[in-house]
């Protein structure tokens, strides 16, 4: 029922010229929640469903959603290869939950034939916590974002099962499992800052976008 974000571009007010142009992959999932957070932080936000829309952005968010669906649609509509090329070319990309799966070099427990875009030198396990009854929220220490813990919501989320040499863990659960990683201009979280009012991950991501522009 969110009608206010149906336009292709949001946050494109008079002051938007100064903001970085950030796309949100809008094939499926909670892309509008990301768009709202990014717009509130001063970004010029657009929804990306086509290769030409990808060319017009300085950074990209891959939202939460169903990773098998986002994978399938990105291949069907010719976005997967341009996305891989953009990632290889250094485009800053932030993925939450399904987005983290898309950014991982390898996924375990995917559906038959599921592919990822890759870029993050990690192996992720899809639905690592089980069914929705095991979905949860918790406080998470994220030293890179300061001393105040992050309220993190995990919804049938993945975990990073192994972190390669090129990637850096940013946060772990009490049991040691990695749930946030970065590698150069790529950032991934198992959880969903976009639905909790937590803006520090998006700010952190926008600083990568601004630094590259």
């Amino acid at each position: 029922m969110t009608t206010t974000l149906r336009e292709e571009s949001v946050g494109a007010g008079e002051s938007a010229a100064a903001g970085p142009r950030v796309g949100v992959l809008a094939l499926q999932g909670d892309f509008r929640e990301h768009a709202l957070v990014l717009a509130s932080l001063g970004a010029e936000v657009s929804l990306v469903r086509r290769p030409e829309e990808l060319e017009a952005v300085d950074g990209l968010v891959i939202p939460g959603g169903e990773s098998s669906v986002i994978d399938k649609l990105s291949r069907t509509f010719g976005l997967a290869e341009p996305l891989r090329a953009a990632i290889a070319g250094g485009l800053p990309v932030y993925g939450t939950c399904a987005g983290l799966i898309m950014l991982a070099d390898r996924v375990l427990d995917g559906i038959a034939g599921q592919e990822t875009l890759g870029g993050l030198d990690v192996v992720v396990r899809r639905n690592a916590f089980g069914s929705q009854n095991q979905s949860f929220e918790t406080e998470l220490e994220v030293p890179a974002l300061g001393a105040t813990p992050v309220r993190a919501v995990f919804i049938r989320g993945p975990v990073v099962e192994s972190v390669g040499a090129a990637a850096t863990p940013l946060a772990r659960l009490d049991d040691g499992r990695v749930v946030a990683v970065e590698q150069g201009n790529l950032l991934g979280t198992s959880f969903h800052p976009e639905i909790t009012g937590e803006h520090r991950f998006h700010e952190y991501f926008l600083s990568k976008v601004r630094a590259r522009r």
Partner: peptide, 15 residues
């Protein structure tokens, strides 16, 4: 929690 319950529906959007 409400956030966890409503959150799954948020992830199904556009689907």
């Amino acid at each position: 929690s409400s956030r966890v319950k409503r959150g799954l529906a948020e992830m199904l959007k556009g689907g």
